[in-house]
Every structure is written in structure tokens, then in C-alpha cells.
Simulated scan of single mutants.
Amino acid sequence: MAIAARSSDPVFVRGGPVGCLALHGFGGSPAEIGPILTALAARGLTVSAPLLPGHGATGPALAETRFRHWIRGAEEALQELAGSCTQLHLLGFSMGALIALHLAARRDVGSVCALAAPVLLDDPHALSGRLARYMRGGPPPTALRSLVRLARLVRRELVHVRAPVLAMQGDRDRWIAPDSGAYLVRHVSGTARLCLLEGRGHFVGLERGRDEVAAQVADWITVRAIGCRP
């Protein structure tokens, strides 16, 4: 089953007892990590990739939401996934990586995979220009400021993340600080590994080499999943 590259629909694929909650980025949708979702489902995992509040074509506008709403949407999806799975793993891209780390700081999970996590984001204007070209109508300033507050919160919480963490980041990513991945792996309490992807930008799940990235993520999760080996 291939996940559509342009759809803004949420994704849920029922597989075995090992589940993965996958979270998209700011202003995006699960399609941003479609190839990775396809790879995880092919390994027999149950995959849940919700459309977070304020995102996509339905629901409240992004300008009307804050990071607490995005977190609440992720928490609800994780709770639902926990009802059918005996083991949970977290995957997040960009803003979704921040939310995944926030969740991991508060509950036991099997592992975390953080793609292009903007943990050092501290200036709401730093992303504004790039997002203006990426998002129709430009980024809502209030939501963008809330994203910065989320990054600051997660930096304080990293010490509470004890699950194994894989941080993946493109060496040509101009959307986030170059030291973001290194900062992340230094400050979590569990084992952590940084994978720098040569010649890749921010959207590592969709760019050239996406199949390799998808395979690496699938390997990372399945090797750590009880009773599920690649």
C-alpha cells in the first residue's frame, strides 16, 4: 500500500501489535512522510498518522490553533493506537518531531525517530520567509510564535526522554539550525544516534533518496520492536 504524496488525509494502517504514531510538520500533512509510512506498513506495523488540528482543508484554521492543540491531537491519536497495540514507537517530521519528543518525555515508548527536528528554533521570523513560499497565504504569525514556544518547551524536556532516539537531518537543511540534531542527541537521557544525510534538505521523507531514508527509519523501529525484526 503506497501513501499518496499529495493527500492531506490522515493515515491509519492496521498491522500487528507494534504501533507507530507518525506526526507531520507545521502547515503540512501526513503526505510529507508518505514513503516512510508505506515502508512501516510493509513491515507489518500498525501505523497512525493523524492530521493535526488546524492543518489540512478541514477543521479550524492554523491561525486559530496553538501548540497545545497540536499536542492534544497527537495525544488522542496515541491513546487510540495504544488501545490496539502492545508496543508504541514515535516518528515525527519537523514540528511533528518536537511533539514526538514531548510525548516521549512524558510516557514510556519503544523508540523515537526525529526527522529534521527544529529544537533550536528561537526566532519566529527565521522561518517566515521560507514558509511563505510553502504555505498558501503565508504562515500565521500567532501559530509560528507558538511553534517557537513549543521548541523552547521541548529543549527543557529533552532530559526526560529515555527512549532510544534516532535523529536524522539533511546536511543542506536551511530551515533549521545546523546544530539541531547534535544538540538533540547530546541532551536526551537515553541512547541516541545522529544520522546526517548528505546532500539532503529539510523534507528528507520526500527528497532524493527518500526510499533509503524510509528503509533506515523502518529498520530503526523494527529492530527495537519486540517480536518484529526486519
Rank of each mutant, 00 (worst) to 15 (best):
L45A: 03
L206M: 12
L51Q: 06
G209S: 10
D211F: 03
I226F: 07
V154I: 09
G129P: 13
E157P: 14
L131D: 05
H69M: 08
V159H: 10
G181F: 01
I99W: 00
P10Y: 03
H55I: 01
R68D: 12
G137D: 08
L103C: 10
L90A: 09
S7G: 09
R72P: 00
V11W: 06
A5C: 09
L127D: 11
R172M: 15
R68H: 08
R14E: 14
A132N: 09
L127W: 02
L166Y: 06
A182Q: 05
R186H: 07
H202S: 13
T191A: 13
F67A: 09
L184G: 05
E64S: 12
V185S: 00
A163L: 11
A177T: 03
G56A: 08
V165N: 07
G19E: 02
P141A: 15
A41F: 11
L21S: 13
L120T: 04
D122V: 00
L21D: 07
L37F: 01
S84Y: 01
R200G: 02
Y183H: 10
G227V: 11
W220V: 07
S8R: 09
L206C: 09
F203P: 07
G83V: 07
F67C: 10
G209R: 12
R133S: 15
D171E: 11
F12H: 15
W70N: 09
G110P: 08
E207D: 14
C85W: 02
G27V: 11
